[in-house]
Design a protein around this nucleic acid. Structure first.
Length: 305
DNA sequence: AAACCATGCAACCGCCAGTAG
DNA sequence: CCTACTGGCGGTTGCATGGTT
């Protein structure tokens, strides 16, 4: 079809956004909502493509963004979610209020991967590095690439990570390294509270055969599980899914402006999300007020003119 | 002080799925 | 059904910054 890139059109600016551009975009979305992204650049007087505007808004201008360093709790949660979801950054971000997929992806690539390696964990498979290096094709046989796992390897949602979170990067904590553990290792040594779970345990051949028989069923279960953020969130927080039934994690916040409202964040984050996202963190955790933040704050101020 | 290197982050690229015409 | 368009996503790149030599 020879589709053209959205930035194919000439005269479109690329690269870093200037404060003026930020202001234009912010003003426009604050006033009219984003609606159709492709039409925003024209309407807002920007020489950018719609994609670029969308990205800028989502990753930087959105008022509900939580900036500053990631807390230990957030890092732990990212690791746990990555073990389940793989590189599905947007789904991971959906469980971290105020964080963007880009931000999480950057954190993972620049920081968390290293930390995992230092802990002797392969950041891709979430298995001990020793096993990954030695056991390719032997030992626990199945290459259990997280995110590429045959999801039927697991027969139930993961155990609640609530017990686990505090362990990660705790200097005194080291994950189990013996070969008796399976694709996922997070805090499963105690057997956990999750009944009928093989989470974190290597499957025996028999188990595998049995599960192969149930492959379709299990796949269905897991597909459902993975596709249902409510179930996932519930599992991750050791709560019943019911408590999450009235959130829609993937929902796009309604950015249409209530022009009568001048308060900042309340109008941006859907109330249901604001109230009921599985992980609610403390308010802004001492975000580093640096130049960029100042720029953002300045820009944000325009939105309330 | 200058050069080099490592790191973090913002933004782009290309692909895919959904959808309207 | 086909085509074109759009939004969304993950991978990647390139630049700015800070640290080290």
């Amino acid at each position: 079809m020879g589709r053209q890139s959205c930035c194919y059109k000439q005269k479109l600016r690329k690269g870093l956004w200037s404060p003026e551009e930020d202001e234009k975009l912010l003003r426009h979305i604050t006033k009219y909502g984003h609606g159709c992204w492709s039409s925003i650049p024209k309407q807002a007087g920007l020489q950018r493509c719609g994609k670029s505007c969308r990205l800028r808004w989502i990753n930087y201008l959105r008022p509900d963004l939580k900036r500053g360093t990631f807390s230990q709790e957030e890092e732990n949660l990212i690791i746990e979610l990555h073990a389940v979801l793989g590189n599905r950054w947007s789904q991971i971000a959906a469980r971290l209020p105020g964080r963007t997929d880009n931000e999480i992806k950057n954190l993972w690539n620049s920081c968390l991967k290293k930390k995992l390696k230092q802990k002797g964990i392969d950041p891709v498979t979430h298995k001990p590095l020793s096993e990954v290096e030695n056991g390719e094709g032997s030992g626990s046989n199945k290459p259990s690439l997280v995110g590429h796992h045959p999801i039927h390897q697991y027969t139930s949602p993961p155990p609640p990570p609530a017990k686990l979170s505090s362990n990660w990067f705790n200097p005194e904590f080291s994950p189990p390294m013996t070969a008796s553990y399976g694709p996922l290792y997070y805090g499963t040594t105690t057997g956990g509270s999750a009944n009928n779970t093989t989470w974190g345990l290597v499957q025996t051949q028999t188990e595998k055969e049995e599960e192969e028989e149930e492959e379709e069923e299990e796949e269905t279960k897991w597909t459902e599980f993975l596709n249902n953020p409510l179930l996932m969130a519930a599992a991750l927080q050791n709560q019943t899914p019911q408590s999450y039934y009235n959130i829609e994690i993937k929902s796009e916040p309604c950015y249409l402006t209530n022009s009568s409202s001048s308060s900042s964040n309340d109008m941006w984050w859907p109330q249901t999300q604001q109230q009921q996202l599985p992980l609610q963190h403390e308010p802004l955790q001492n975000p580093d007020i640096c130049g960029k933040d100042m720029q953002r704050l300045t820009a944000a101020a325009f939105g309330h003119i």
